[in-house]
Each structure stands twice: as structure tokens, then as C-alpha cells.
Amino acid sequence: MIIDASEGSLKSFLKTLPQVDEVGVHARAAMLGTRSIKTTSKAWAIDMAISMMDLTTLEGADTPGKVRAICAKAVRPDATDLSIPSVGAVCVYNDMVGVARRTLDQIGGSSIPVAAVATAFPSGRASYAVKAQDTMDAINAGAAEIDMVIDRGAFLSGRYGEVFAEIVKIKELCGDKAHLKVILETGELVTLDNVRKASYLAMLAGADFIKTSTGKVVPAASAPVVYVMLEAVRDYYSMTQTRIGVKPAGGIRTTKDAIKQLVLVNEVAGPEWLSPRLFRIGASALLNDLLLQRMKMRDGYYASPAYVTLD
């Protein structure tokens, strides 16, 4: 890369990025939404979506009991059918990391990482010292993945250097102990041009994943936004030979939504990204819909929602 962390250098690099034509992206994303995924490809997609899920609980009302419940679900999404894969990760607030880690280890989920949201999630409005402490707490408690938020205020006022520097520093704290996912909160960035710029800023600063949203702001993981982010990781790969992951989060509730995401991955970034290593879906209610659809494919009829567990 021919850029350094200085404000001027970042600004001039981001200016070289081609503009995004919103109308064109919306049209293409909508067209890809018409792909019809049936039979064996649907079955494959459902299992892939389950294994890509960051099963998430991010509520003020979260308790150890609630976290233990989703951990159990993460390891064995449906105890009556052990052919169902485990999810990709469990995603919680940092004070719940310890409980999640211990629970997973106790119930045979030691290979499932715990992801913690950090850096004053979801707003990111805190001093760097607080954000650093937040991150370290999570790592010390056993988080293997950190979902940080960028400083959208700094981004929108054009202080790209600040956004960049913060990501670099959090990445340093993560070291080799944790993967870093950088949340752009695209619902606050609003334009697709901003989504593209923020994606590059995060990738250049060392993000392992770029993530759409906190789930606390609407709109979240819309198809056009994910489309632009997938283009960004594809093009970043051809520039640097490094593959960065993408994580849409927020608003993906049905199997159809999830399969549309996989179609985007397949046809925009390419099939190399069809792996939990490079694509995650942040969701909670989605898992039960995937399980119901999986039962439908297995049994030939729709089961009552009473056959999936509410955790």
C-alpha cells in the first residue's frame, strides 16, 4: 500500500476510489434477489448459513441464564437432529464473555468462538481509554473475536485519520488473541459512497472483517450495502492478495433473507468467501427459521414453530 496513516494520505487515497451509482447498485442487488435457490442448493445454503451465524444477544436485559441458553443453542441448534452444524460464534456484550466462554467449554462447544462487542458499542461515543479498556476486558475474559464500532462522528466530519488510528490501536490490542470485526454502522453513514470509503478505511487499518451494523440502527444489512462491501473485499483482495471477511448484521430474519445474502457473496465477492472464515451473519431469530426450513426439506412439510426452541 502506498499510503500511510496521515490524514492527507488517507483522504487522497479515499478520493481515488470510484464513485458508487446508487441506482445501479439497487438494481443489481434486486436482480440478484430474484435468484431461485431450490432443492440441494437450498439444503447446502441452509447449513452454510447456520455455520456462518454469529448467534447474538445484545440486550440490556441479558443475564447469565440467557447467555447460557443461547450457548446451548449455538452448539446444538436442534438437539433432535445432530446432523445440524454448530453456529459460527456466540456474540455478547463484554461482561457476558466469561459466562459464554465457560458455558461453551462445558457443553462441548470449545471450538465455537465468543465474539464481544466493544469500544463503547453501539454508539462508540467514549474516550479512547474507555474503548481500550472495554476491548481488553473482553479479550481477557476469553473473547476470540472483537466487534468494534467506528467513530461515525469522526468519519462524517472528515476526520478519517482518527477513525483509522482508532482501528489500528484496537487491532494492536487484539494482537493474535482476537479477530477484529469493524462495524461501520452503515445506517448512520447513509450513502453507498460512504460505505465504500469506510470499508476501505477499515480494511487498510487492519480489520479482519467489515461488519454492516450494530443491529441498533435501522436500516441495517440491506442488500445494496452488503453488495458494496462485498465489492470492496473483492477489490481489496485483487490489490493486496488478502481476503477480508464480511458480516451483515441486523434485519436478517428469514431463510430467504439469509440465502439472498449467500447469493450476493457467491456472485459479487466470489465462492471463496462462502465460508464462516470469511462471511458471518449476525442474527438471533434467523436460526429458528433456518431450522424450520431445514425440517421442511427433511420431512416434506412445515413443522409447527413449537418444534423449535425459544431461548
Binding site: S36, I37, K38, T39, K42, M48, N266, P271
Partner: peptide, 8 residues
């Protein structure tokens, strides 16, 4: 490609 779309 593992995600080969079945005929629809």
C-alpha cells in the same frame, strides 16, 4: 463451486 444453483 459448492454453491451450484439447482435447476429452478
Amino acid at each position: 463451486n459448492p454453491f451450484e444453483y439447482s435447476p429452478a
